[in-house]
Simulated assay, not measured.
Amino acid sequence: MTLRSDAFLGRVQERGDHGIREEAERAARVGPALLGARPDRIEGATEGTAKWDVGAGLGATADAAGEELTRRVLLPLPVGFGLLFGRTLPA
């Protein structure tokens, strides 16, 4: 399934409960970057907003990718990473 950019951002906006599209765009762009960076290195990000943004962006990505691909991505990751993708059970 191909997900267009505006549909993807709509999902990020919904999952992250972002009031405006610009917040969803920021979450989609900055969220994954926070996986490899400390939140204080990203302007305006706190630990809480970082987790929220990562969860919204990666959760929408997992929805678009589908369960099988998401399971394959999560399989080598440490337990608990599934939560970042909106998945509560181990892959």
Rank of each mutant, 00 (worst) to 15 (best):
D63Q: 08
E67C: 12
D17V: 05
L35V: 07
G16N: 06
D63T: 04
A65Q: 04
L3E: 11
L75D: 15
G48T: 14
G10F: 12
D17Y: 07
R29D: 07
V73P: 01
P78D: 03
L35T: 06
R41K: 13
A65L: 12
A24Q: 05
R41G: 11
L69C: 10
A33T: 08
E43A: 15
R26Y: 07
A27C: 07
A33M: 12
A7I: 13
A37H: 10
R71G: 09
M1W: 13
R21T: 03
A50D: 07
T70A: 05
G86A: 00
R87I: 00
L83W: 03
D6W: 05
L69S: 11
A65S: 04
R87S: 00
D17E: 11
A45N: 01
E68G: 11
L84D: 02
V73C: 08
D6S: 14
G16Y: 01
R38L: 13
G80H: 09
A7S: 11
E47H: 13
A7K: 14
A60C: 15
R29W: 08
L9R: 01
A91P: 08
R29T: 06
L74G: 05
P78R: 03
R26H: 08
T49W: 07
E23P: 06
I20F: 15
T2E: 15
D40K: 12
L75R: 14
R15A: 07
A60L: 10
R41N: 13
A27F: 01
R4N: 14
L3K: 12
A62W: 00
A64N: 08
R21S: 10
A37Q: 14
T2G: 11
A45I: 06
E14V: 03
A60K: 02
Q13L: 05
A50G: 15
G36M: 14
F8V: 03
L34S: 01
T49P: 06
E43F: 12
R38D: 15
L77G: 02
I42E: 10
T88F: 11
W52P: 11
R38Q: 12
G31F: 04
G16A: 05
L83S: 05
E22M: 10
E68F: 08
D17A: 09
G31I: 00
D40Y: 15
A27I: 04
L77M: 07
R21N: 09
Q13F: 06
A65I: 01
G57K: 01
G48V: 12
R38S: 15
L77V: 05
A60N: 11
A50F: 11
E67P: 07
L35G: 07
R29A: 15
A33G: 13
L83E: 08
E22I: 13
G57S: 10
V73T: 06
